[in-house]
Design a protein around this nucleic acid. Structure first.
Lengths: 292, 292
DNA sequence: TCCACCCTCTGACTTTAGTCAGAGAATCGG
DNA sequence: CCGATTCTCTGACTAAAGTCAGAGGGTGGA
């Protein structure tokens, strides 16, 4: 049974990784401090970002930083731009401690591989990779988002930038058919954004036309997480939304350089169709019926 | 790099499993209490065993049990056989709570699979299985052990019992060539025992003969963990020990029904040889040179 | 300039986890 | 039956983790 296997996995892994984590890391220092030390990184990091990434209470984090400062591992100084924000930086000692943590993490990893034969090692590493990838994939959340929000804007800009890089002709969005913020807000349309750890990693939009097929726009997935099925999920969610808003079909146009996207559309049942608009950057037009 | 992959795995998994563990379990009750509640099980369990399995301080465990008793989830009563020992049993409420925990663990597992496509799910489950298996394998420890210790005796008895079941003729160890406790203690010989979480899961022994090949005896691996390479590890360790004690070769006899063992010997470079003793239960004799 | 809001910090808590030293019953071996 | 040992429990701690309220500077828009 699938659930059984997952539970067995959870048990074995938390036991193994958890136990070793404690054995190797956080020996001299409480684990909380180590996590902060690690997260600050060699470049330094402002306190606000630390709090967000580690999900710590501001009072608690402040205290942890105070301890690290006391130990001479960290300096906290006001940011230059906004003097409410403070930036934590590692001292030379702090950098050294962090490297020690790094080395210990390596040891930990090695200790998991050591007792195995070369062949088992290869298989374990491959399986771990697979698990990492797929668990990451399962952490991605897809939701309807106001296109004016920062995460949405980030995706749209990344999308345009990528088109600019990939199209033979470059890309000037003022020449292309529009899909502005208003057009991507209900009832005119909507924007889906995929996030991973609250960071935007993909998007896809729909323009709704009463009685006409819905138009699919702005499909983009961050290069960092391609191959995890996020594009497929966005597409399926968009189709669900289209149906929910009364569309009987979806259609879209795309550029010949976007080969993964074209493959995705075909795999999801989209049929190549004659041009239904005059998008100057398009080479292919697709359509899919959404009738049950 | 292998170590990189393992570290990425550790990071992703502790984040994912750890975060969800806390979200789903231990909501009403501290996690320590939940672990105890779970470990007691529907049958009840004596306090000593709980302490060993959860590796808890006796005072601490006692307090946890007191809290659970206070909440009406657990009854602790003296054992009938030995009245120093006390047995913890779940009350009706306790059983219900434990089932709730169980259901939550299932939900947790489901929430990991849910966002994935059927194909990704299959791959994730397969990879998790592989990781569970191989991490379990890497937790197995092999060490020289006094054959009189309980773990050693457990293995030897399990070994005899299995021979009894598998040999066409049954097995009476008084008719077989001996390898008693004294013969498996240095300098006459030695016994290796493999343990997983301090429980014996396999063994293998060596009888040393000055100037003659060492004799390999008592190779056994618990059915629960076959296929994890523990047999191979035992065999390799035995060969190392044989070399360390001056043997230039190892030899062994075996019964035709022990097909996995025979395959293992062949795979590890053992050559079938003429009978070097009159073991009544043997059909095959193997030998391997240990010269560098 | 004023006011609302941000960001970080301190002080004053609570809860969880865990350790250590015995006390007090029960058992076992001789 | 005695003494050593085993098992569990209580009391008295400590450390880590985390929460909450509010103080006190800083910023940015009306």
């Amino acid at each position: 049974m699938e659930v059984e296997a997952v539970r067995r996995f959870n048990r074995v892994v938390t036991q193994r990784v958890g136990a070793l984590d404690e054995a190797y890391l956080g020996r001299d220092r409480p684990l909380g401090q180590d996590r902060v030390l690690w997260e600050i990184g060699p470049e330094g990091c402002d306190v606000r970002a630390l709090r967000a990434r580690l999900e710590l209470d501001s009072g608690y984090l402040s205290r942890l930083l105070r301890s690290l400062e006391g130990a001479g591992l960290v300096r906290v100084e006001p940011s230059v731009g906004d003097r409410r924000v403070r930036i934590a930086r590692l001292t030379a000692d702090g950098v050294a401690e962090r490297e020690l943590l790094d080395a210990r993490s390596d040891q930990l990893a090695t200790s998991m591989l050591d007792p195995l034969s070369a062949r088992q090692r290869d298989r374990l590493v491959a399986a771990m990779d697979e698990v990492s990838r797929l668990l990451t994939a399962s952490l991605v959340q897809v939701e309807v988002m106001d296109p004016r929000r920062a995460e949405a804007q980030y995706c749209l800009e990344a999308y345009f930038a990528e088109l600019g890089r990939r199209f033979d002709t470059g890309f000037d969005h003022t020449r292309s058919i529009s899909a502005g913020n208003a057009e991507l807000t209900l009832p005119a349309g909507l924007l889906l954004v995929a996030t991973l750890h609250a960071e935007p990693v993909g998007c896809g939009a729909l323009k709704l036309h009463d009685g006409e097929p819905a138009e699919l726009k702005r499909m983009w997935v961050s290069p960092d997480i391609r191959g995890l099925g996020v594009g497929r999920r966005l597409l399926q969610e968009l189709e669900r939304e289209a149906v929910a808003h009364g569309a009987l079909a979806v259609r879209l146009e795309t550029n010949r350089t976007l080969t993964e996207a074209i493959a995705l559309y075909r795999a999801q049942g989209y049929q190549e169709a004659p041009a239904f608009n005059a998008e100057p950057y398009a080479h292919h037009w697709f359509e899919k019926s959404l009738k049950a």
